[in-house]
Amino acid sequence: MVQIENLNRYFGAVHALNNVHLHVQKNQLFGLIGPDGSGKSTLFDILATLRLPSSGKAIVHGFDVQKKASQIRKIIGFMPGQFSLYQDLSVLENIRFFANVYGVAFDESFPLIRDIWQQIAPFKHRLAGKLSGGMKQKLALCCALVHKPSILLLDEPTTGVDPVSRKEFWEMLQTLKSQNITTLVSTPYMDEANLCECIALIQNGKILAINSPAAITAQFKFNLFGVQSTRSNMLIKQLRQFEKTQHCFAFGKTLHLMLKDFSMTERDIVEFLEKHGHKNVAVWRMKPGIEDCFIELMQS
């Protein structure tokens, strides 16, 4: 549904997108995961035909973004990163307005938006500017779906939204899969990666990896351990001095220790720490998460 080849985009001297290759399959829920300023929004702008690529190709549903922008605009639903609805119009007025923009009638009963509509219907006469963050996002999703698009482009829909509203939002995205919609969604929250079928990790305009979340964690190159001790603030500095250490970062009170050497065991680490005066050290082997992979890929 979306094919991106060798895509580059410059803003003056800034290389915002660096040789991006990316394929999104039909009806897939595809996640673009990366921090602010990694190029996610620029990529969305190009797919939504708001910007042109500096070089390379981007094809949406068979239409080239450089030549067939008007065809693409008919079949995409776009939700920009900034809340982009009319704050001084009510929920219903916003939805009706966007339905009219696409030349369709707003039909509360059609399956695509029925679930979402049920959640925002109690507030249909409230001004959009007066909604809570989570509700705003649901309204924006509703407006993006009102013309039954075949591709949904969601640029950071859950940023700044509390964890519960985020969960509800993702549940909605899961149900769209069965409705014949391809969804491309970006997020800076790594924990949301596991909710996607396929993810691309992006940093500084470069794609670090593309695959299913499980396949990405399976490709993790280091020997990963979790370490805890009672004196945790000295622990991290000492572990970084350990000669086999590649990276060491705190995940809450647990330190994730990445070693290059797969022959190392829990015992070696405990021994090293006890030599440095630590007692009650807990060390165990860990399965890497997306964040571990992101840190690993960022460094290489």
Binding site: G34, P35, T159, P188, M190, Q203, F294, M298
Partner: peptide, 12 residues
């Protein structure tokens, strides 16, 4: 909310 939007390493 000091850490919204940064990469995992910067956050750590």
């Amino acid at each position: 909310e000091p850490t919204s939007g940064v990469d995992p390493m910067t956050r750590r």
